[in-house]
Nucleic acid binder design. Sequence first.
DNA 1: AATGTTGCCAACCGCGCGTGT
DNA 2: TACACGCGCGGTTGGCAACAT
Length: 333
Amino acid sequence: MGRSPCCEETGVKKGPWTPEEDKKLIEYINNNGHGSWRRLPKLAGLNRCGKSCRLRWTNYLRPDIKRGRFDEDEEKLIIHLHSILGNKWSTIAARLPGRTDNEIKNYWNTHLRKKLLQMGIDPVTHQKRSDLGFLAGIPNIFAFSGNLDMNALKLQVDAAKLARVQLLQSLIQLIASTSSPSSSDLLINHHVYGSSSLGSFGVSPTQDLNLGVGNTNNNNQEFLMESNNGGGDNGNQVMMINGCPCPYNIHDHSSQHSTPSLVPASPETLDNNNININNNIIIDQTQDQANCFADECIGISKNSNTSFGDWDGLNFDDSNTDLCWKDILEQIS
DNA sequence: AATGTTGCCAACCGCGCGTGT
DNA sequence: TACACGCGCGGTTGGCAACAT
Protein backbone atom coordinates (compact mmCIF):
# COMPACT_ATOMS: atom_id res chain seq x y z
CA MET A 1 0.00 0.00 0.00
CA GLY A 2 2.83 2.32 -0.71
CA ARG A 3 2.12 5.80 -1.80
CA SER A 4 3.20 7.33 -5.00
CA PRO A 5 6.15 9.66 -4.56
CA CYS A 6 4.47 11.85 -7.12
CA CYS A 7 6.36 14.86 -8.37
CA GLU A 8 9.19 14.44 -5.92
CA GLU A 9 11.60 14.69 -8.78
CA THR A 10 13.53 17.92 -8.56
CA GLY A 11 13.32 20.41 -11.36
CA VAL A 12 10.00 19.12 -12.63
CA LYS A 13 7.89 21.89 -14.03
CA LYS A 14 4.53 22.71 -12.48
CA GLY A 15 1.80 25.13 -13.34
CA PRO A 16 0.05 25.95 -16.57
CA TRP A 17 0.91 23.98 -19.65
CA THR A 18 2.32 25.71 -22.69
CA PRO A 19 1.09 24.98 -26.22
CA GLU A 20 4.46 23.37 -26.95
CA GLU A 21 4.07 20.98 -24.05
CA ASP A 22 0.54 20.16 -25.12
CA LYS A 23 1.74 19.43 -28.63
CA LYS A 24 4.45 17.10 -27.37
CA LEU A 25 2.04 15.23 -25.16
CA ILE A 26 -0.60 14.89 -27.85
CA GLU A 27 1.88 13.71 -30.44
CA TYR A 28 3.44 11.18 -28.11
CA ILE A 29 0.12 9.69 -27.01
CA ASN A 30 -1.26 9.65 -30.52
CA ASN A 31 1.79 7.72 -31.69
CA ASN A 32 2.44 5.47 -28.72
CA GLY A 33 -0.49 5.57 -26.37
CA HIS A 34 0.13 6.76 -22.85
CA GLY A 35 1.47 3.44 -21.57
CA SER A 36 3.08 4.05 -18.21
CA TRP A 37 2.31 7.57 -17.12
CA ARG A 38 5.37 7.55 -14.94
CA ARG A 39 7.69 6.89 -17.83
CA LEU A 40 5.81 8.99 -20.33
CA PRO A 41 7.37 12.39 -19.56
CA LYS A 42 10.89 11.21 -20.29
CA LEU A 43 9.84 9.34 -23.39
CA ALA A 44 7.85 12.30 -24.64
CA GLY A 45 10.57 14.80 -23.79
CA LEU A 46 8.51 16.62 -21.22
CA ASN A 47 9.84 18.11 -18.02
CA ARG A 48 6.70 17.15 -16.12
CA CYS A 49 5.76 14.40 -13.73
CA GLY A 50 3.60 11.59 -15.01
CA LYS A 51 0.71 12.62 -12.90
CA SER A 52 0.68 16.09 -14.36
CA CYS A 53 0.73 14.58 -17.85
CA ARG A 54 -2.15 12.27 -17.04
CA LEU A 55 -4.26 15.09 -15.63
CA ARG A 56 -3.53 17.33 -18.59
CA TRP A 57 -4.50 14.59 -20.99
CA THR A 58 -7.61 13.33 -19.24
CA ASN A 59 -8.99 16.72 -18.30
CA TYR A 60 -8.07 18.81 -21.28
CA LEU A 61 -6.30 17.27 -24.26
CA ARG A 62 -8.28 14.09 -24.78
CA PRO A 63 -9.90 14.30 -28.22
CA ASP A 64 -13.33 13.19 -27.03
CA ILE A 65 -13.72 15.95 -24.51
CA LYS A 66 -16.82 18.05 -24.95
CA ARG A 67 -16.15 21.70 -24.26
CA GLY A 68 -18.62 24.41 -23.55
CA ARG A 69 -21.45 24.98 -21.18
CA PHE A 70 -23.52 22.23 -19.67
CA ASP A 71 -26.98 22.05 -21.17
CA GLU A 72 -30.13 21.70 -19.16
CA ASP A 73 -30.38 17.93 -19.51
CA GLU A 74 -26.81 17.53 -18.37
CA GLU A 75 -27.49 19.70 -15.35
CA LYS A 76 -30.48 17.66 -14.33
CA LEU A 77 -28.67 14.42 -14.87
CA ILE A 78 -25.76 15.59 -12.73
CA ILE A 79 -28.09 16.62 -9.94
CA HIS A 80 -29.93 13.36 -10.13
CA LEU A 81 -26.83 11.20 -10.25
CA HIS A 82 -25.32 13.18 -7.40
CA SER A 83 -28.40 12.46 -5.33
CA ILE A 84 -27.72 8.77 -5.84
CA LEU A 85 -23.95 8.62 -5.86
CA GLY A 86 -22.81 11.59 -3.84
CA ASN A 87 -19.43 13.03 -4.74
CA LYS A 88 -18.50 10.14 -6.98
CA TRP A 89 -17.47 12.49 -9.72
CA SER A 90 -15.76 9.90 -11.84
CA THR A 91 -18.85 7.68 -11.78
CA ILE A 92 -21.04 10.63 -12.64
CA ALA A 93 -18.66 11.64 -15.40
CA ALA A 94 -18.91 8.17 -16.87
CA ARG A 95 -22.57 8.91 -17.51
CA LEU A 96 -21.92 12.18 -19.28
CA PRO A 97 -20.05 11.51 -22.48
CA GLY A 98 -17.27 13.96 -23.12
CA ARG A 99 -17.35 15.47 -19.66
CA THR A 100 -14.57 14.97 -17.15
CA ASP A 101 -14.93 14.39 -13.46
CA ASN A 102 -12.98 17.56 -12.81
CA GLU A 103 -15.26 19.59 -15.02
CA ILE A 104 -18.38 18.18 -13.40
CA LYS A 105 -16.94 18.70 -9.95
CA ASN A 106 -16.13 22.31 -10.75
CA TYR A 107 -19.53 22.90 -12.26
CA TRP A 108 -21.20 21.40 -9.25
CA ASN A 109 -19.25 23.51 -6.81
CA THR A 110 -19.69 26.76 -8.71
CA HIS A 111 -23.19 26.46 -10.12
CA LEU A 112 -25.36 23.54 -9.16
CA ARG A 113 -24.59 23.60 -5.47
CA LYS A 114 -25.64 27.22 -5.24
CA LYS A 115 -28.72 26.57 -7.29
CA LEU A 116 -29.87 23.81 -4.96
CA LEU A 117 -29.21 25.97 -1.95
CA GLN A 118 -31.34 28.70 -3.46
CA MET A 119 -34.07 26.15 -3.91
CA GLY A 120 -33.88 25.25 -0.25
CA ILE A 121 -32.33 21.88 -0.93
CA ASP A 122 -29.31 20.63 0.89
CA PRO A 123 -26.78 19.87 -1.85
CA VAL A 124 -25.21 17.14 0.24
CA THR A 125 -28.28 15.15 1.23
CA HIS A 126 -30.64 16.40 -1.49
CA GLN A 127 -33.23 16.73 1.22
CA LYS A 128 -34.97 19.96 1.86
CA ARG A 129 -33.07 22.01 4.34
CA SER A 130 -34.26 21.63 7.90
CA ASP A 131 -33.21 25.04 9.12
CA LEU A 132 -36.27 26.55 7.44
CA GLY A 133 -34.17 29.52 6.52
CA PHE A 134 -34.91 28.91 2.91
CA LEU A 135 -38.58 29.59 3.60
CA ALA A 136 -37.71 33.24 3.54
CA GLY A 137 -37.14 32.89 -0.14
CA ILE A 138 -40.38 31.10 -0.93
CA PRO A 139 -42.44 34.25 -1.46
CA ASN A 140 -39.96 35.21 -4.13
CA ILE A 141 -40.24 31.81 -5.71
CA PHE A 142 -44.02 31.93 -5.75
CA ALA A 143 -44.10 35.52 -6.86
CA PHE A 144 -41.65 34.75 -9.56
CA SER A 145 -42.34 36.63 -12.73
CA GLY A 146 -40.67 36.55 -16.06
CA ASN A 147 -38.63 39.65 -15.82
CA LEU A 148 -35.36 37.93 -16.58
CA ASP A 149 -33.62 36.77 -19.66
CA MET A 150 -35.10 33.61 -21.10
CA ASN A 151 -32.30 31.23 -20.19
CA ALA A 152 -32.33 32.31 -16.60
CA LEU A 153 -36.08 32.21 -16.72
CA LYS A 154 -36.19 28.59 -17.76
CA LEU A 155 -33.86 27.48 -15.01
CA GLN A 156 -35.71 29.53 -12.44
CA VAL A 157 -39.00 28.00 -13.45
CA ASP A 158 -37.60 24.52 -12.93
CA ALA A 159 -36.21 25.55 -9.60
CA ALA A 160 -39.46 27.09 -8.56
CA LYS A 161 -41.37 23.98 -9.49
CA LEU A 162 -39.18 21.77 -7.41
CA ALA A 163 -39.32 24.20 -4.53
CA ARG A 164 -43.07 24.09 -4.65
CA VAL A 165 -43.07 20.34 -4.53
CA GLN A 166 -40.71 20.45 -1.58
CA LEU A 167 -43.08 22.80 0.16
CA LEU A 168 -45.93 20.47 -0.59
CA GLN A 169 -43.97 17.66 0.98
CA SER A 170 -43.52 19.73 4.11
CA LEU A 171 -47.23 20.27 4.28
CA ILE A 172 -47.93 16.61 3.78
CA GLN A 173 -45.53 15.72 6.56
CA LEU A 174 -47.21 18.20 8.79
CA ILE A 175 -50.58 16.71 7.98
CA ALA A 176 -49.34 13.24 8.67
CA SER A 177 -48.08 14.28 12.04
CA THR A 178 -51.24 16.10 13.05
CA SER A 179 -54.13 14.12 11.67
CA SER A 180 -55.31 10.55 11.69
CA PRO A 181 -53.63 8.14 9.32
CA SER A 182 -56.77 7.42 7.44
CA SER A 183 -57.70 10.98 6.77
CA SER A 184 -54.26 12.08 5.69
CA ASP A 185 -53.83 9.06 3.49
CA LEU A 186 -57.06 9.86 1.82
CA LEU A 187 -56.12 13.44 1.37
CA ILE A 188 -52.70 12.64 0.02
CA ASN A 189 -54.13 10.00 -2.21
CA HIS A 190 -56.69 12.32 -3.60
CA HIS A 191 -54.63 15.39 -4.09
CA VAL A 192 -51.23 14.05 -4.85
CA TYR A 193 -51.21 10.44 -5.88
CA GLY A 194 -54.40 10.89 -7.74
CA SER A 195 -52.76 13.17 -10.21
CA SER A 196 -52.60 11.37 -13.50
CA SER A 197 -49.74 13.40 -14.78
CA LEU A 198 -47.28 13.08 -11.99
CA GLY A 199 -44.03 12.48 -13.65
CA SER A 200 -40.50 12.67 -12.56
CA PHE A 201 -37.64 14.79 -11.63
CA GLY A 202 -35.36 12.03 -12.58
CA VAL A 203 -37.58 9.26 -11.38
CA SER A 204 -37.75 9.51 -7.64
CA PRO A 205 -40.80 11.61 -7.02
CA THR A 206 -42.91 9.55 -9.33
CA GLN A 207 -41.86 6.28 -7.88
CA ASP A 208 -42.22 7.36 -4.31
CA LEU A 209 -45.47 9.11 -4.83
CA ASN A 210 -47.14 6.43 -6.83
CA LEU A 211 -46.02 3.56 -4.71
CA GLY A 212 -46.37 5.34 -1.45
CA VAL A 213 -49.86 4.35 -0.40
CA GLY A 214 -50.08 1.24 -2.41
CA ASN A 215 -52.48 2.55 -4.93
CA THR A 216 -52.33 1.79 -8.59
CA ASN A 217 -49.68 3.16 -10.75
CA ASN A 218 -51.25 6.21 -12.21
CA ASN A 219 -48.66 7.37 -14.60
CA ASN A 220 -47.52 5.91 -17.83
CA GLN A 221 -44.39 4.21 -16.54
CA GLU A 222 -44.51 0.59 -15.63
CA PHE A 223 -42.66 -0.71 -12.63
CA LEU A 224 -42.23 -4.26 -11.55
CA MET A 225 -42.15 -4.96 -7.88
CA GLU A 226 -39.92 -7.83 -7.02
CA SER A 227 -38.56 -9.42 -3.92
CA ASN A 228 -34.83 -9.48 -3.59
CA ASN A 229 -34.80 -12.49 -1.34
CA GLY A 230 -36.61 -14.98 -3.44
CA GLY A 231 -40.05 -14.00 -2.35
CA GLY A 232 -39.47 -14.03 1.36
CA ASP A 233 -41.94 -12.28 3.56
CA ASN A 234 -39.70 -9.88 5.38
CA GLY A 235 -40.68 -7.04 3.15
CA ASN A 236 -37.38 -6.63 1.39
CA GLN A 237 -38.85 -5.48 -1.83
CA VAL A 238 -36.86 -3.99 -4.60
CA MET A 239 -38.43 -2.00 -7.31
CA MET A 240 -37.04 -3.15 -10.60
CA ILE A 241 -36.86 -1.07 -13.70
CA ASN A 242 -36.16 -3.17 -16.71
CA GLY A 243 -34.38 -5.66 -14.52
CA CYS A 244 -32.34 -3.12 -12.61
CA PRO A 245 -32.92 -2.39 -8.95
CA CYS A 246 -34.09 1.10 -8.25
CA PRO A 247 -32.38 2.82 -5.33
CA TYR A 248 -35.39 4.81 -4.33
CA ASN A 249 -37.48 4.61 -1.24
CA ILE A 250 -40.40 2.26 -1.30
CA HIS A 251 -42.43 3.10 1.72
CA ASP A 252 -43.99 0.37 3.72
CA HIS A 253 -47.18 1.98 4.80
CA SER A 254 -48.43 -1.16 6.37
CA SER A 255 -45.93 -0.87 9.18
CA GLN A 256 -45.70 2.83 9.62
CA HIS A 257 -47.48 5.91 8.62
CA SER A 258 -44.83 7.76 6.76
CA THR A 259 -44.93 10.36 4.13
CA PRO A 260 -43.33 9.96 0.80
CA SER A 261 -39.93 11.38 0.23
CA LEU A 262 -39.56 13.53 -2.79
CA VAL A 263 -35.88 12.89 -3.00
CA PRO A 264 -33.91 9.72 -3.35
CA ALA A 265 -32.17 8.17 -0.44
CA SER A 266 -28.81 9.78 -0.05
CA PRO A 267 -25.70 7.79 0.72
CA GLU A 268 -25.69 9.31 4.18
CA THR A 269 -28.93 7.55 5.03
CA LEU A 270 -27.53 4.13 4.31
CA ASP A 271 -25.94 1.78 6.71
CA ASN A 272 -23.16 -0.57 5.75
CA ASN A 273 -25.60 -2.92 4.10
CA ASN A 274 -27.13 -0.17 2.01
CA ILE A 275 -30.30 -0.34 3.99
CA ASN A 276 -31.56 3.05 4.96
CA ILE A 277 -32.84 4.01 8.34
CA ASN A 278 -36.48 3.73 7.34
CA ASN A 279 -36.15 0.10 6.36
CA ASN A 280 -36.84 1.14 2.85
CA ILE A 281 -35.20 -0.77 0.11
CA ILE A 282 -32.05 0.65 -1.28
CA ILE A 283 -30.04 -0.34 -4.23
CA ASP A 284 -27.20 -2.71 -3.76
CA GLN A 285 -24.75 -0.20 -5.07
CA THR A 286 -22.44 -2.31 -7.07
CA GLN A 287 -21.01 -0.43 -9.95
CA ASP A 288 -22.92 -2.45 -12.51
CA GLN A 289 -26.18 -1.82 -10.81
CA ALA A 290 -25.45 1.83 -10.30
CA ASN A 291 -24.58 2.14 -13.94
CA CYS A 292 -27.61 0.15 -14.91
CA PHE A 293 -29.81 2.35 -12.84
CA ALA A 294 -28.22 5.48 -14.20
CA ASP A 295 -28.97 4.19 -17.67
CA GLU A 296 -32.57 3.81 -16.68
CA CYS A 297 -32.62 7.32 -15.37
CA ILE A 298 -31.37 8.59 -18.65
CA GLY A 299 -33.85 6.51 -20.51
CA ILE A 300 -36.77 7.69 -18.48
CA SER A 301 -35.62 11.24 -18.78
CA LYS A 302 -35.59 10.92 -22.52
CA ASN A 303 -39.18 9.78 -22.47
CA SER A 304 -40.25 13.01 -20.97
CA ASN A 305 -40.32 16.33 -22.71
CA THR A 306 -38.44 17.79 -19.82
CA SER A 307 -37.50 16.32 -16.51
CA PHE A 308 -39.77 18.75 -14.81
CA GLY A 309 -42.32 18.73 -17.50
CA ASP A 310 -44.53 16.11 -16.01
CA TRP A 311 -44.68 17.99 -12.76
CA ASP A 312 -46.74 20.49 -14.60
CA GLY A 313 -49.61 18.23 -13.67
CA LEU A 314 -49.25 19.65 -10.22
CA ASN A 315 -50.60 22.98 -11.18
CA PHE A 316 -50.26 25.21 -8.19
CA ASP A 317 -51.72 28.18 -9.88
CA ASP A 318 -55.14 27.30 -11.14
CA SER A 319 -58.35 27.38 -9.22
CA ASN A 320 -58.40 23.66 -8.57
CA THR A 321 -55.04 23.94 -6.99
CA ASP A 322 -56.30 26.67 -4.75
CA LEU A 323 -58.91 24.24 -3.65
CA CYS A 324 -56.24 21.68 -2.88
CA TRP A 325 -54.23 24.10 -0.86
CA LYS A 326 -57.31 25.16 1.05
CA ASP A 327 -58.08 21.57 1.83
CA ILE A 328 -54.56 20.92 2.95
CA LEU A 329 -54.48 23.98 5.14
CA GLU A 330 -57.82 23.05 6.63
CA GLN A 331 -56.48 19.63 7.45
CA ILE A 332 -53.51 21.17 9.16
CA SER A 333 -55.64 23.48 11.23
C1' DA B 1 -8.97 54.90 -14.47
C1' DA B 2 -7.65 52.53 -10.41
C1' DT B 3 -8.58 49.39 -6.98
C1' DG B 4 -11.03 45.76 -4.68
C1' DT B 5 -14.02 41.75 -4.90
C1' DT B 6 -15.97 37.71 -6.76
C1' DG B 7 -16.38 33.77 -9.81
C1' DC B 8 -14.44 30.36 -12.43
C1' DC B 9 -11.58 26.54 -13.64
C1' DA B 10 -7.11 24.29 -14.66
C1' DA B 11 -3.92 22.22 -12.03
C1' DC B 12 -2.03 20.44 -7.85
C1' DC B 13 -2.00 17.61 -3.62
C1' DG B 14 -2.65 13.81 -0.69
C1' DC B 15 -4.88 9.54 0.06
C1' DG B 16 -6.49 4.88 -0.92
C1' DC B 17 -6.79 0.86 -3.81
C1' DG B 18 -5.13 -2.81 -6.88
C1' DT B 19 -1.35 -5.29 -8.42
C1' DG B 20 3.23 -7.20 -8.70
C1' DT B 21 7.34 -8.87 -6.42
C1' DT C 1 3.09 -10.96 4.61
C1' DA C 2 5.21 -6.73 3.65
C1' DC C 3 6.46 -3.46 0.64
C1' DA C 4 6.79 -0.67 -3.70
C1' DC C 5 4.71 0.95 -7.67
C1' DG C 6 1.18 2.88 -10.60
C1' DC C 7 -2.93 4.86 -10.96
C1' DG C 8 -7.41 7.11 -10.05
C1' DC C 9 -10.14 9.80 -7.08
C1' DG C 10 -11.86 13.73 -4.40
C1' DG C 11 -10.60 17.97 -2.16
C1' DT C 12 -8.22 22.22 -2.47
C1' DT C 13 -5.65 26.06 -4.35
C1' DG C 14 -3.76 29.73 -7.33
C1' DG C 15 -4.24 32.71 -10.95
C1' DC C 16 -6.85 34.92 -14.31
C1' DA C 17 -10.95 37.44 -15.93
C1' DA C 18 -15.07 39.78 -15.15
C1' DC C 19 -17.52 42.72 -12.43
C1' DA C 20 -18.37 46.23 -8.80
C1' DT C 21 -17.10 50.28 -6.32
